[in-house]
Design a protein around this nucleic acid. Structure first.
Lengths: 250, 250
DNA sequence: GACCTCTGCTGATCCAGATCAGCCCGCACC
DNA sequence: GGTGCGGGCTGATCTGGATCAGCAGAGGTC
């Protein structure tokens, strides 16, 4: 494969597409990325990709499948911080902090490219634009976590659920999965509960309410927006934090 | 002032001290920083430093005083995402995303150094190590937001309060304010309520409970840890996410 | 075919924390 | 010296969501 071909291949990956929304990536940026992107690993459901408290962990770029990052509390309960979908960069903090402050676990079978601490620091030294791009991607993740914080702090259960479903819909559409009408969603009600800070029982009831009021249906692994506008209204959803207007770094 | 003197001055700032925990900063990194650090602006209480939805905003390095970053929901309630103390870098996302997705407001009179979009991108291009350091600082902020998310999702009101007070204590000690016994805290119970996702009434009751059970006293602008170990136990507080073990980038 | 586990679903009851209403104090301001 | 008003503080009441308990179907596995 020639250099040029490699660069074309990587350009089409969801990860590169996401970064390109922020910086115009040079040929050398792309080849550094594609080098990393080649090395694929597979993970099966339930096997931690990153383990809280352990050091020397790698980061990953998700190529296919869904994962979730979460924290376990003394007491056994857990809080899911976010779900990762194809194109997402995960475990950055576990590399920068040497020891991981959270877990990451696949929800479906996952394919991911491993990025070691050495890869990362090396890539930053060689291609500063890439470092800035990763900083941007990390900031976008932080914006999502902040939005989840608002969910838990100030939105009711139904608003939270609506907001979450809309956010996942928007994120998936950005990487070419799903459309305005809905998307395939491999999450169980238990996972939703741990993410939204609710009990599984209550998640079930909220989903029923949303279904019966004709807003949203989540059944058999598929989310359908029955009334997109009403959902946006209910959740106070403003997708500004997800997409930005063209590259900042030319 | 000679180059060397400037470098020495900036090295003692809380901001540089924080970054130095992660990367060994070179002479040129320091001089880029000190250039920015000279330009001080003052803000008084209640005047937004960063305004949600507006574009072309700057970031700031806090030199003195406390600020808070928050989001307003349609409906008027707000959620405080975090408080900023001296040495903190704030508004990074408002620069990287061109338009701000949150507000930042001083809680006490504030002195801060302005960092424009141009400053930031320029500094990154000139000193990649600094870019990595800022990435690290941003990740540390994200780790704090994640911990707040866990607070709201899975901790009871008393646990939340304990966790929050311990976290602020640890952060303040890192920049040389306060000690193991307690610290000066300019927050009102209303601010605490907006940060912890509680009502002000309930904040008051929780504070009384903690006081009466001999764990923590917050009165007249001062937080006193009456039983630090019991607080850590109650909150499940693990300060690993705040301090890391020596520079990663040599 | 018996058994287990996972997930979705439901009713009954309980409780942490919200909401409503109001008092008290210090202090800025005219 | 009245008059706001921003805090802190408190009692009474209400409620969203947790908890407890249990059923049903769909796989998986021996």
């Amino acid at each position: 494969m020639t250099q040029r071909n490699v660069a074309i291949a990587i350009q089409d990956s969801p990860f590169a597409r996401k970064l390109a929304a922020f910086v115009r990536l040079s040929q050398s940026d792309l080849s550094v990325m594609s080098e990393i992107y080649q090395r694929r690993r597979r993970f099966s459901v339930g096997v931690d990709m990153i383990h809280q408290g352990q050091s020397g962990q790698s980061a990953f770029v998700l190529a296919s499948g869904w994962a979730c990052s979460y924290k376990i509390l003394p007491g056994g309960t857990r809080q899911i911080v976010d779900f990762q979908i194809p194109g997402d960069f995960l475990g950055l903090r576990s590399v920068l902090f040497r020891t991981a402050d959270h877990n990451v676990e696949p929800i479906t079978p996952v394919q991911a490219s491993e990025v070691t601490q050495h890869d990362l620091l090396d890539a930053f030294a060689r291609t500063p634009r890439l470092a800035t791009a990763v900083l941007w991607a990390a900031s976008r993740d932080e914006a999502m976590v902040v939005e989840h914080l608002v969910d838990l702090g100030r939105r009711s259960a139904a608003e939270r659920m609506a907001h979450f479903m809309l956010e996942m819909g928007a994120r998936l559409r950005l990487v070419g999965i799903g459309d305005r009408t809905g998307y395939a969603c491999p999450l169980s009600q238990y996972l939703l509960a741990d993410a939204l800070g609710l009990s599984a029982v209550h998640v079930n009831r909220v989903l029923r309410e949303l279904r019966e009021s004709g807003l949203l249906t989540f059944q058999k692994g598929r989310v359908v927006f029955d009334d997109h506008d009403a959902l946006v209204e209910l959740a106070g959803f403003d997708r500004a934090y997800l997409d930005h207007d063209g590259p900042l770094l030319i």
